[in-house]
Nucleic acid binder design. Structure first.
Lengths: 347, 347
DNA sequence: ATGAAAGCGCTAACAG
DNA sequence: CTGTTAGCGCTTTCAT
């Protein structure tokens, strides 16, 4: 089965290759009779232009890359979808990849994107301090928009204001009388974890309360870590009275661990989720969460990157979106004297 | 910023373009001294071969395409990941796209894949009977593996045995005394919906019971439809005593609708989910589900497609995987006399 | 083992 | 408006 090329089309339509090409690319200056003949030839032969050849010749790919940690996370999907809509409208295709938060995979994806000569990249990174990754990013000859990270280099940056989010959550819990609040989040070499810890400390400081460093855990963002951290914390004699899931998809892990201890939410333990989800909404009781408008954020990223592609040498920009605390039924007021807490469990 | 090409590398290393190319492609017959010089040049110049040019010249893309309805669905993500692992190992890249179950988008994706000259495709389809889609699929000049669909054409087919799954679910519910069982699933122009309905009827027939056609709903697979169908059904005087979510991600919608009516699971209404999820596991009570090994299925699809690429003219094959009913706490035995049911609601 | 040169499928510049 | 032709970046003969 021989591949049909533009040459076959030209021959079939009895025109030159150039004319065939013009028709394919919708050039205006083609006589109607020729155009119809070429179109007919395309149809009968079932010709589809070879994209790779077009890219080589045109010297540009009209593709944008995007790297997320895990496309499965529904909020990230809405982020990607919003960005995709804008890119398609602007004539760009979108290559979507998951890094699984692994350095080797991230490097591999950057390499492939270079090979593909993409014209822009929206990405997070598994580490802000890793020199290999920083090197690989700086070797890129297309603009990079950093999402929710804090890195050196001339990148545009769009972030979620996690400090504000966790600050709202902790302030709320403190007002309910909670003092032992577990924050489980990712490693401090990544901005969202640092910001959450900062927001946590700020909220305590505002009330002139001390932070128990043992309650600030930075082991990882994923659900499995959420499970482990929660399980360990709940087994301790002086267990926390509230937990903040400091990651976008940690909530399942946290809830599984709580379930395993037979503690009751919110009577025995209050919970605030790191992002909204069906699970948070449908859990019994419904879980209070920090929520962002990911669709808006995705659209903004796309817009900024498109502008950057147009104007490569303007100043890098930086933007932050503040989350909103959605109060549902997963946080209860707590008796102030710590000794009482154990009793309330019996009730 | 000038793009560096293999020509620059050759010049820098003082070798011919051919030699540079041989080094880049790891050809064995290059003298060590030349090789090191080329490698050094590549490094200092930061050269990365242009993938599009390679594809044009080699006449093949070494890419596989995959179209799923919605990559967000976690089970589909594990399906894709398993397939991806095998493809990468075999030297193929994977282009992952969501069709959103929309015909226009599906056609557009097929068109793009043709332009990209992919060498194989794993896909579902939004309609098995649509002639445009069938036409577009048959115009493809690379092998297509149909996932969970029933279409004409010389495609390999891998399916989930939904008939068996729903049959298990209904048989189980009948054994608990349920008679009014709502099955909410997708339109009958798609295999998984047809198969589920068939499994439903078979289970009733096996007990010599009649099916109430009003309880077999085929409006759609998505969560929003699950919500609507459930809400409507629960408002009727003679409401069902059990609901089967006949779709991979319908459960959130079903549960939301139940929540809105203040009915209690499983006392007032029993529920079986169409696929396993964190939500099913963590809901209160935990939801019984039909479960498949999506990782295994994804790997199988990849393997079959790779074999098909090797041997284009062997007989198309067909495979089905049976789901397993995972019993949790969302189904209760029901009092047989229908009149009693309303009372139990007050209790 | 290496270099020169042809050419993959296509677009665009040029001449007519 | 159309045809001819150079050449995008690369791989792969074909000589040497």
């Amino acid at each position: 089965m021989k591949r049909i090329t533009i040459r076959d089309v030209a021959k079939q339509a009895n025109v030159s290759i150039g004319t065939a090409s013009r028709v394919i690319n919708g050039a205006p200056n083609v006589e109607a009779a020729y155009r119809t003949r070429v179109l007919a030839a395309i149809k009968t032969l079932g010709f589809v232009p070879n994209r790779a050849a077009q890219e080589v010749r045109k010297g540009r790919s009209r593709e944008i890359g995007i790297i997320v940690r895990d496309i499965t996370t529904p909020v990230l999907a809405s982020f990607v979808r919003a960005a995709q809509d804008l890119f398609e409208e602007a004539g760009y295709g979108l290559l979507i990849c998951s890094s699984d938060n692994r350095k080797d995979r991230e490097l591999e994806l950057l390499r492939r994107f270079r090979q593909r000569r993409i014209e822009g990249l929206i990405t997070t990174t598994s580490s802000e301090v890793d020199t290999d990754l920083a090197q690989a990013r700086n070797d890129l000859d297309f603009p990079v928009l950093m999402f929710d990270r804090e890195v050196d280099g001339a990148h545009d940056i769009v972030q979620v204001d996690h400090a504000s989010g966790v600050n709202q959550a902790v302030t709320y819990l403190l007002s309910l009388g909670h003092r032992r609040i577990l924050l489980s989040t990712g490693p401090l070499n990544i901005y969202p974890a640092r910001a959450r810890v900062e927001g946590y400390k700020r909220a305590f400081a505002a009330q002139r309360l001390d932070v128990d460093p043992a309650l600030v855990r930075t082991a990882g963002f994923d659900a499995a870590t959420g499970f482990r951290e929660t399980a360990v914390a709940l087994e301790r004699a002086n267990r926390p009275s509230a937990i903040i899931a400091g990651g976008i998809d940690m909530l399942p892990g946290v809830l599984k661990a709580i379930r395993a201890t037979h503690l009751h939410v919110p009577r025995d333990i209050s919970v605030i989720g790191g992002a909204d989800s069906d699970l948070a909404l449908l859990a019994e009781p419904a879980i209070s969460v920090l929520r962002w408008n990911f669709t808006e954020i995705g659209a903004t990223c796309a817009r900024m990157l498109l502008e950057r592609i147009e104007a490569a040498d303007t100043e890098p920009r930086r933007l932050a979106f503040a989350p909103e605390l959605v109060v549902r039924d997963s946080c209860a007021a707590v008796v102030i004297a710590p000794a009482q807490k154990r009793e309330s469990r019996q009730k």
